[in-house]
C-alpha cells in the first residue's frame, strides 16, 4: 500500500509515517461509513421483516391477541401452550401427522434422490436430458402440482384407472383423498414426486466432488460396483448428506400448500399439519396469539431437529 501510494504521486515528497497514518485512518473512516451505508438497506429490511416477526412470535404467543380487535392484546402467560398440549386434540393430531409425513418423506426422498443422482452421474449419452426431465416438477409450482394430483386421485381418475388396467381389475383403487387411511400417503407420494429432483441435483454436485482416481484405485483393487459405492462414494458424501437431510426435514415439517389445496386438513383431520393448523387458528379464526404459539412450537421443533441431525450425523465419524 505504502509503496504504491508513492508511485501514483511521484511529484510529492515520500509520505511521512505520520501522514500515512492520518490518511489510512481517514480511509478507515470512509470504509466504516461506506460499509454501514451499503449494508443498511438489507439490514433494515431484515430487521423489519425477519427479526421483528420472530420477536413477535415470542411476544404474541403469551397473549390473547386477535388479528382484528378493538381491545389491545392481554398477557395470558402460558395459557396458549397449555391449551395446545392439553385441550386441543386437533393440534396433537397435527403434530402426529406432520411427524408421520416427515418420517416417510425424509428417508425416501433422500434415498430416491441419491439413486437418481447416481444414475445421471454416469458418463452416458443423454444423461443431461434425464437430469432436466427429473427437475421439471421442481420448477412447477406446488399449487399446480397439488391441483393436478387431486384430479388424478379422483375415484374415476387416472391413478385408479391405471391400477385397474395394470392388475386386470383384480385390485380396486380407493377414493384416495376422502379416506382417512389413504389421504396422507397419497399426499406423501406427490410431495416426493415434486421435490426429489431438487435433491438429486444436490447429491449430484456432491458426487462430482469425489475425485475419479479414487474409483480407479478401487477398481484396481478389484472392488465391484457395490463395494465402490460403499467405500468410495458414500464416505465422500458426508457433508452433502447432512445438507440434504436437514433441508428435506425442515421443508417436510412445513407442509402446508398440498393440504390447503387438496384436503383442507380432512378427512377427519387425518391430514391436518402443524402449519395448516397454525394458519387455521391464527389467521382464519383470527386467534393470532394462539397461532403464534403454534408457530413458536414449530420453530423450536425445526431448530431442535436441525441441531440433533447435525450432531448425530457428525458423531458417526
Amino acid at each position: 500500500m505504502a509503496s504504491s501510494t508513492t508511485s501514483v504521486a511521484p511529484a510529492r515528497p515520500p509520505a511521512t509515517p505520520d501522514l500515512a497514518r492520518r490518511r489510512s485512518s481517514a480511509g478507515a473512516r470512509g470504509e466504516r461509513r461506506s460499509g454501514l451505508a451499503m449494508a443498511a438497506p438489507a439490514a433494515i429490511l431484515l430487521g423489519l421483516f425477519l427479526i421483528v416477526p420472530v420477536l413477535l412470535a415470542f411476544g404474541l404467543s403469551f397473549t390473547n391477541a386477535r388479528l382484528i380487535s378493538p381491545n389491545p392484546p392481554r398477557f395470558v402467560g402460558l395459557d396458549n401452550f397449555i391449551r395446545a398440549f392439553t385441550q386441543d386434540p386437533v393440534f396433537l393430531r397435527s403434530v402426529l401427522n406432520t411427524f408421520l409425513f416427515a418420517i416417510v418423506v425424509v428417508p425416501v426422498q433422500a434415498g430416491l434422490g441419491l439413486l437418481l443422482a447416481v444414475l445421471v452421474n454416469q458418463k452416458l449419452r443423454g444423461v443431461t436430458f434425464f437430469r432436466i426431465v427429473y427437475f421439471i416438477p421442481v420448477v412447477t409450482s406446488i399449487v399446480v402440482v397439488s391441483i393436478l394430483w387431486k384430479f388424478m386421485y379422483q375415484p374415476t381418475g387416472l391413478i385408479n384407472s391405471f391400477i385397474d388396467t395394470m392388475t386386470f381389475g383384480v385390485l380396486q383403487g380407493a377414493d384416495w383423498l376422502n379416506n382417512p387411511r389413504t389421504a396422507l400417503p397419497a399426499i406423501i407420494v406427490l410431495s416426493i414426486w415434486q421435490a426429489v429432483g431438487f435433491h438429486m441435483l444436490i447429491w449430484l454436485s456432491g458426487l462430482q466432488t469425489i475425485p475419479g482416481e479414487l474409483y480407479e484405485a478401487a477398481r484396481m483393487d478389484g472392488a465391484d460396483a457395490w463395494a465402490q459405492f460403499k467405500n468410495v462414494t458414500w464416505p465422500g458424501l458426508r457433508s452433502t448428506m447432512i445438507f440434504v437431510l436437514v433441508t428435506i426435514t425442515i421443508s417436510a415439517l412445513g407442509l402446508f400448500v398440498q393440504i390447503d389445496v387438496m384436503t383442507q386438513g380432512g378427512p377427519q383431520n387425518s391430514t391436518t399439519t402443524i402449519v395448516y393448523h397454525a394458519v387455521r387458528k391464527g389467521y382464519r379464526e383470527q386467534e393470532t396469539g394462539y397461532g403464534a404459539a403454534i408457530s413458536l412450537i414449530f420453530f423450536v421443533l425445526v431448530l431442535v431437529i436441525a441441531l440433533v441431525q447435525r450432531f448425530v450425523t457428525r458423531e458417526k465419524d
Binding site: 449494508a39 420472530v54 404474541l60 412445513g254 397454525a278 391464527g282 403464534a292 425445526v302
Partner: peptide
C-alpha cells in the same frame, strides 16, 4: 455492526417462512 449483521444472516438461514407467517400478518 458487521459482526452483528453477519451473525443474524447466518442464524436465520434455516428459519422457514412458515414459522413467522402468522406474527408477520399481525
Amino acid at each position: 455492526g458487521r459482526g452483528a449483521v453477519l451473525a443474524v444472516v447466518i442464524a436465520t438461514l434455516i428459519v422457514p417462512f412458515e414459522t413467522i407467517a402468522i406474527p408477520m400478518v399481525y
